[in-house]
């Protein structure tokens, strides 16, 4: 197991899920299929989109 730090700009999917968690009242929720707006972000990651660091 390895643990790395990355810049916020490379972590859009996790960022989305963290905010998704804030808007639900569930303590822990597993998503067997990705929530609606997450698909788009996953697609962006798969094609290797480069994000500019602001």
């Amino acid at each position: 197991m390895s643990l790395f730090v990355i810049l916020l700009e490379g972590d859009h999917c996790a960022d989305f899920l963290a905010k998704f968690g804030a808007n639900s009242d569930t303590e822990l929720l597993y998503h067997a299929s990705p929530p609606n707006n997450l698909l788009h972000l996953i697609g962006m990651d798969v094609v290797g989109t480069l994000y500019s660091r602001e």
């Binding site: 999917c13 639900s24 990705p34």
Partner: peptide, 22 residues
């Protein structure tokens, strides 16, 4: 309000599972 989330994918970007919660 604090919350958390995460996503597990294989190295090709294929979606395996994700989780979120408050």
């Amino acid at each position: 309000r604090a919350s958390f989330g995460g996503i597990i994918r294989n190295n090709a970007g294929y979606y395996l599972l994700s989780f979120s919660g408050c």
